[in-house]
Design a protein around this nucleic acid. Structure first.
Length: 730
DNA sequence: CAGGTCCGCCAC
DNA sequence: AAACGTGGCGGACCTG
């Protein structure tokens, strides 16, 4: 030990022709903002946290390598003083440090680390870089440290031979370690520190320019840091799969599928590709399914449609659509082949989920932030498991555990109401929610022209409520009448005419929730005026009619045609270009206007795009109308859920899945779950409520062995929450 | 044959 | 002129 402390472990690294001297850390107090990087053994699998081998730190002035055994001391010295910690990819470094501190029983340091995250003092340059690029152009690529440094610092961090060999440090006295290991590690910490300096400066400017809050870190960085840690923990926790159940489900499905293959073969033999030598149906080796000849299938379907004088749906490329969901499913009775094809397609889709679940434990991976502010999931994507099908029920609680499933009630209506209230100072939807009414029932009662009390007694209330959901969901999302008709039919089985949809849209946005009319109104004029650096009134003088701007949009997209495909008159097009040129006061655009540059990447393409922000302070730059309408309430809900995830994780709950507004948590088996349910419910509601001030937030939950949509809260006579069991299991 | 693109469908 | 947005993934087909 003693020999480690002398100065022989030291050196100099170069970044961008600047030299940085580094030493072995010996207890010095660093500045109030330190970058930290951990080097570990190789990452073997998603369950295990790799072992800590070396730490490097930098406060921009001084740079050190730190032995793992001094991690606790390092954190205690700094974090108790309110120091900020910077990492690049906190989802990696946090669990490494946390695991090390846990194993070494360093409770105090561990507590300081968690508290620092909780108090928004832990940062992540990767997440910050993503948030900045989202604000700039709605791009959500996660940059590596190397590419972020290259882009923002102009520094090239070359990957070298040491990167993957840090396990060698475990059994070697540091005085004998090749200095290259230290050089490599120190560079990363220094680079991270300077990267953070540049990124926070950029983020701060963006926040100022858009006038958004930095209460949750610049561009909600703190929320994303918390989410990243929580999501990583979910991946490591993993989920148990009931392989027997999976097998049985699969066997059922297989027999159904092979019957269908037979039947289709007899009616339409060339739908299946044939192995010429053997004459057998060709099988896709990976899936075990017969190979489909889409050309043949399309011509069969088209033939049937023509015989019945049915206009077929076409794909974007003009091919006959094969979609069962949006087209053929509605014409099943026309011909046995259509029915068989729909059956087959549904069954094979279901079958496709089995591959990813075919392990006794699965460890789905999560991405912390996508464009809307939500997460994504892969390998397998547990966020897209069919909700109503028995396939979800192969996910089970681990031995000795039960699943606690909790999801928010109508959360996006709450965030929408909050947003309207924030923007316009009033919201009828908010009033409904504050009074504790069910917004779907309320809307349904309004449409039926009866009071909520009368509605509750109505015999058709269930169906009417379903009906109302179509509008409560679709209209805020910006659906037009025609989309609403399709949506109602497809998702809710509700028949609606275009006229009916128009009437309902008008009613909801004018009478029931008048704030929605303002919320959904589009101010194309002022977006364009901002880009051209002119007053909206000037534009209005030239282009008084809404369709003028519609034409302009088409023209600058290089697509000067009406919806029916007829081109605009050339004189009209020429006139609009001239008018645009004489109106424009933005020097950066004039040349593009003169040359009529409508190529992809031309700044003219972005003339009608604007930025949108959430109440939490995240920005999406360069978005169009519908995105800008969706983001404020969808993104706000996502942030609330992310904070709840962190608070659940911090409270020690074993979260095993996160499905946007739903958590699956494993709890130890118990006689009843009343108290723990109340605690989890409280954490979820309180986490969200700070984002929707004054609006109550409620959740629904259940305890069950198998993941199922059907599960619901069950109570005994004493009002205690019990485990739910599936009716068909008894 | 690998890789890219299009299409379709699952979730929220 | 009308507008739902995200994301992951599997299968067919095309391309070099």
């Amino acid at each position: 030990m003693r020999q480690l402390i002398n100065t022989q472990i030291a050196g100099t690294v170069e970044l961008n022709e600047t030299s940085f001297s580094w030493y072995l850390w010996n207890g010095e107090l660093l500045g109030d903002c330190i970058a930290i990087d951990t080097e570990t053994t190789l990452i073997e699998d998603r369950r295990r946290v790799p072992e800590l081998c070396l730490i490097s730190v930098s406060d921009g002035q001084r740079h050190f390598v730190v032995q793992p055994c001094r991690l606790a001391e390092l954190l205690e010295l700094h974090l108790s003083n309110g120091t900020h910690l910077i990492c690049h990819n906190i989802a990696f470094d946090f669990p490494v440090m946390d695991k090390y501190l846990t194993v070494c029983k360093e409770a105090e340091a561990r507590n300081l680390l968690w508290t620092a995250v909780d108090e928004n003092r832990v940062h992540d340059t990767m997440l910050l870089a993503v948030l900045i690029s989202l604000a700039q152009n709605d791009c959500d690529l996660r940059p590596s440290l190397e590419s972020a440094c290259d882009e923002h610092l102009g520094v090239v961090l070359e990957k070298d031979e040491y990167r993957l060999r840090f396990n060698e440090l475990k059994d070697t006295a540091w005085s004998d370690v090749d200095v290259g290991f230290f050089q490599y590690a120190v560079k990363d910490a220094i680079a991270t520190w300077f990267l953070f300096a540049v990124l926070t400066h950029m983020a701060n400017e963006i926040c100022q320019k858009h006038g958004v809050t930095d209460e949750f870190g610049f561009l909600t960085e703190s929320i994303q840091v918390k989410a990243a840690i929580g999501l990583d923990r979910i991946t490591r926790n993993g989920m148990s799969i009931d392989l027997d159940r999976l097998k049985r489900l699969r066997a059922d499905l297989e027999s159904g599928v092979s019957n269908l293959v037979e039947e289709i073969h007899t009616i339409a033999p060339d739908v299946w590709r044939i192995v010429t030598k053997t004459g057998d149906v060709a099988i896709n080796a990976r899936t075990g399914l017969p190979r489909v000849n889409q050309k043949a299938l399309r011509s069969y379907l088209l033939g049937i449609a023509e015989r019945h004088r049915l206009d077929v749906l076409r794909t974007g490329k003009g091919e006959v659509s094969l979609s069962t969901k949006t087209f053929w499913g509605q014409h099943r009775n026309l011909d046995p082949l259509i029915d068989l094809y729909c059956e087959y397609s549904g069954k094979t889709k279901l079958r496709s989920f089995f591959a990813g679940l075919n392990h006794s434990r699965i460890h789905p991976k999560y991405e912390t932030i996508k464009r809307t502010g939500r997460t994504s999931c892969s390998q397998p994507n547990i966020q897209q498991l069919p909700a109503g099908s028995p396939i979800r029920e192969v996910v089970v609680a681990s031995p000795g555990k039960v699943l606690f499933i909790i999801d928010y009630s109508c959360i996006e209506l709450r965030t929408l109401a909050s947003e309207c209230h924030r923007l316009f100072g009033h919201s009828c939807l908010r009033k409904v929610l504050v009074e504790g009414k069910d917004p779907h029932s309320y809307t349904a009662a309004m449409f039926a022209d009866i009071s909520l009390d009368e509605f509750e007694k109505h015999s058709d209330r269930k169906q009417l409520r379903q009906h109302a959901k179509v509008f409560n969901f679709g209209i805020p999302a910006g659906f037009g009448p025609r989309s609403l008709v399709d949506f109602a039919k497809l998702e809710y089985g509700v028949d609606l005419t275009v006229e009916g949809a128009e009437r309902f849209i008008r009613k909801l946005t004018h009478d029931v929730y008048p704030e929605l009319r303002i919320y959904l109104s589009e101010d194309t004029m002022s977006i364009l005026a901002t880009k051209l650096l002119v007053a909206p009134l000037e534009l209005q003088a030239t282009w008084p009619e809404p369709y003028h701007l519609g034409m302009l949009q088409k023209i600058i997209q290089g697509n000067p045609y009406r919806a029916d495909g007829t081109p605009y008159r050339q004189t009209t097009v020429d006139r609009m270009w001239l008018e645009l040129h004489s109106l424009c006061r933005n020097p950066d655009l004039l040349d593009h206007i003169t040359s009529r540059n409508t190529a992809a990447g031309s700044p003219l393409r972005y003339l009608f795009e604007s930025s949108v922000s959430t109440a939490t302070g995240r920005i999406r730059g360069g978005v169009r109308f519908t995105q800008s309408k969706n983001t404020p309430f969808q993104g706000l809900a996502a942030d609330g859920c992310k904070l709840a995830l962190w608070n659940l994780t911090k409270a020690g709950y074993r979260v095993i899945a996160f499905i946007h507004d739903e958590f699956v948590i494993e709890l130890p088996e118990a006689d009843h779950y009343t108290e723990v349910a109340a605690d989890i419910n409280r954490i979820c509601c309180e986490s969200m409520e700070q984002f929707v001030p004054g609006i109550p937030v409620t959740c629904e939950y259940a305890v069950t062995r198998r993941w199922s949509k059907k599960a619901e809260a069950v109570y005994d006579d004493a009002g205690r929450l019990l485990e739910w069991t599936s009716p068909n299991q008894k």
